[in-house]
C-alpha cells in the first residue's frame, strides 16, 4: 500500500526476529522507513514496540534478521535516541549544555564546530532557559528538551524516540510535541516514534504502523497526510478524527482477535 523504493529508505528492516524465553516477540518483521518521514509504531501493551526500536537502534541484539541504514549497520550509521526516562538518560554531573555537547565531543569535533551546532539547536528550539544549569535544576519538560537536543546534535540519519513524552503532563506534552514536529519537519529529519498514546502516534507522524500482539505482525500501515505544522487544532480536525477512528478499529480488532493467554 505504501511501496517504498530502496533508494527512498533511510532504514530497511528484514526478517527481524526476537524471542524471550522461547516466546517469539518478533518473527520475521519487515519494515522500511522512508527518508524524511516520521514513522510511529502503535500496538497493544507488550507487543514489542520497545523491543523493535531498541533492536533497530542497536541497543538490543536481534536473534536474526538485519537492520540496514542505507546499506550500513547501526554501528556505521549516525543515530540519535531519546529515552522515556530523561532523568536517567541525561548525565547529571554535566551541565545541560555539556550534555548536548557530549555526543559531538565523542565524535572529536573541534570546539568551534561544537559551539556552532549548540547555537543552531538553541535557535531551532527557541530555548529560553539557562543551559548552564544542571539537569536536575530544570523542569521535566526542559530536561526532555535537552535530551532531544542532545540526540539531534550529531545530525542523525535517524532519530529514535521511545515514549518521549509519557512522563510529562499534558500541557507540556502538547507544546513539546508541536515544537519537535516543527523542527523535525523543517530539517527533514527521519524519525521513528514508539508511543502508547494513539493521539500522539498520529499527531507526530507521517505514517502509523499498527502492530498486533506478539509475535507482532503489521496489520495496518496508515498514512497520515495531515499538513505540517500541526498544533492543538489539528487534533480536532475531521481528517485527524477519521484517521484516529481507523486506527482504533484496527487496534480493537487486533486486541480481540487474540485474547492474551492468562
Amino acid at each position: 500500500m505504501n511501496a517504498i523504493s530502496p533508494r527512498e529508505a533511510a532504514v530497511s528492516v528484514r526478517g527481524l526476529s526476537k524471542a524471550y524465553r522461547g516466546q517469539p516477540v518478533h518473527a520475521g518483521l519487515d519494515l522500511d522507513l522512508r527518508r524524511g518521514d516520521i514513522l510511529s509504531v502503535f500496538g497493544p501493551n507488550g507487543c514489542g514496540k520497545s523491543t523493535l526500536i531498541n533492536m533497530m537502534a542497536g541497543l538490543l541484539e536481534a536473534d536474526s534478521g538485519s537492520v540496514l541504514f542505507d546499506g550500513r549497520t547501526v554501528r556505521e550509521a549516525r543515530i540519535g535516541y531519546v529515552f522515556q526516562n530523561y532523568r536517567e538518560a541525561l548525565l547529571p554531573w554535566k551541565r545541560a549544555a555539556d550534555n548536548i555537547r557530549y555526543p559531538l565531543r565523542l565524535l572529536g569535533q573541534p570546539r568551534a564546530k561544537v559551539e556552532q551546532r549548540l547555537e543552531q539547536l538553541v535557535a531551532a528550539f527557541q530555548v529560553r532557559f539557562d543551559l548552564q544549569r544542571y539537569p536536575y535544576e530544570l523542569s521535566g519538560g526542559q530536561q526532555q528538551l535537552v535530551s532531544v537536543m542532545r540526540a539531534l546534535a550529531v545530525e542523525p540519519e535517524v532519530l529514535f524516540l521511545d515514549e518521549p513524552f509519557s512522563a510529562l503532563d499534558y500541557e507540556t506534552t502538547l507544546s513539546l510535541r508541536e515544537l519537535l514536529g516543527r523542527v523535525l519537519k523543517e530539517n527533514r529529519i527521519t524519525a521513528m516514534l514508539v508511543s502508547h498514546d494513539l493521539e500522539e502516534s498520529i499527531a507526530l507522524s507521517d505514517r502509523v504502523l499498527m502492530l498486533t500482539r506478539r509475535p507482532a505482525r503489521i496489520v495496518d500501515d496508515v498514512p497520515v497526510p495531515l499538513p505540517w505544522p500541526r498544533d492543538a487544532a489539528t487534533l480536532s480536525s475531521p481528517e485527524f478524527v477519521a484517521i484516529k477512528k481507523r486506527c482504533l478499529d484496527v487496534f480493537t480488532a487486533s486486541v480481540r482477535a487474540r485474547p492474551e493467554a492468562a
Binding site: 541497543l59 538518560a89 541525561l90 555526543p103 542532545r150
Partner: peptide
C-alpha cells in the same frame, strides 16, 4: 550504575 545512562552513552557511540 543506571543502565539507561550506559545505554545513552553507547547509542551516542561511546
Amino acid at each position: 550504575a543506571r543502565r539507561t545512562r550506559v545505554l545513552a552513552a553507547k547509542v551516542m557511540g561511546a
